[in-house]
């Protein structure tokens, strides 16, 4: 460990923030869906993979990365709405287990579909030319694309915040998460709002998958491992809390990145240890409301 410079440490933390940005996006979507629908979406990782493959398809058809950034959330968002309409909505009011099992099964089906249509092998995903290379960020050279991922995440979160705080549908979502029945009394078709929220969550998941693709390539299983991590993030941050998803996402990203540097053999264990500690000290997570699961 000797000779580790402060700059290297700072760079590794920055790398962790880029990784954390992807976690934040995934966990934000999961939290949004859980906060409003009380559905733990275990298919969220599959939508992440679908987003990456949809992006791959856009490029293969001659489109560019910027077009993919636009098309992918639309595709995964509409698919999410179809899933909510066809499957998930029939299980509302049946507690937390049934939708969890449904989406768990669905994730296997979706991953298998990817394998059937795109092959079981992983595929390379090039960093877009304009974002290749590294830039000097003061503490050393840092890959431009990772900076882009961080910037995109900040932008998406800002737009999401504007949407929730400043629009009519945003107000419906905030109020509906607290008291759906009064929203029906006030004339809101909550079923449509729930469909939209599910689609919003899967749209962000797909976008996260696309953003992650140049970092790790695409493979049918790419969502499985990251779903486990994103799940840790939502639990640590507090189920249903967007602020929790952001802070815990960045924290988990940094922890993963630092353990990779200092104790690679502990890489997989570290964040679950974090989750265990948080659950012991604060079972509802950083920002979660107590008793939400009961």
């Amino acid at each position: 460990m000797a000779g580790l410079s402060l700059d290297l440490l700072a760079l590794q933390i920055f790398t962790g923030l880029a990784l954390g940005a992807v976690y934040v996006l995934l966990a934000t979507g999961m939290s949004l869906i859980f906060g409003m629908l009380t559905v733990v979406n275990f298919a969220h990782g599959a939508f992440f993979a679908l987003g990456a493959y949809a992006g791959f398809l856009v490029l293969a058809l001659g489109g560019n990365f910027w077009l993919a950034l636009l098309a992918v959330p639309i595709v995964t968002g509409l698919l999410g709405m179809a899933v909510e309409w066809g499957l998930v909505r029939h299980l509302y009011g049946r507690g937390i287990d049934d939708p969890l099992l449904l989406t768990f099964g669905l994730s296997y089906v979706l991953v298998e579909l990817i394998r059937i249509f795109a092959g079981t092998q992983g595929l390379p995903f090039d960093t877009p030319d304009a974002l290749a290379g590294a830039v000097d960020i003061g503490i050393g050279y840092f890959p431009l694309y990772r900076l882009f991922v961080i910037a995109m995440t900040v932008t998406i979160l800002f737009l999401l915040w504007l949407f929730l705080e400043r629009t009519r549908i945003g107000l419906i979502i905030r109020a509906g998460a607290r008291d759906p029945e009064i929203m029906r009394v006030l004339g809101v078709d909550t079923g449509r709002v729930w469909r939209l929220v599910f689609g919003l969550g899967t749209a962000i998941a797909g976008l996260a998958g696309l953003l992650a693709a140049p970092l790790q390539g695409v493979s049918p299983e790419m969502g499985n491992a990251i779903l486990a991590d994103a799940f840790v993030v939502t639990v640590v941050g507090g189920m249903g809390s967007l602020a929790g998803a952001i802070i815990a996402g960045l924290l988990v990203g940094v922890i993963v990145s630092l353990t990779a540097l200092f104790a690679p053999e502990a890489g997989d264990v570290a964040i679950f240890a974090l989750m265990a500690v948080v659950l012991l000290i604060r079972p509802q997570g950083f920002f979660g409301r107590a008793g939400l699961m009961s």
Binding site: R168, L171, I172, A175, I182, M183, L186, G187, V188
Partner: peptide
């Protein structure tokens, strides 16, 4: 905001 909810639909 609660008053706005009365007009939201």
């Amino acid at each position: 905001e609660n008053l706005r909810l009365g007009l939201i639909a």
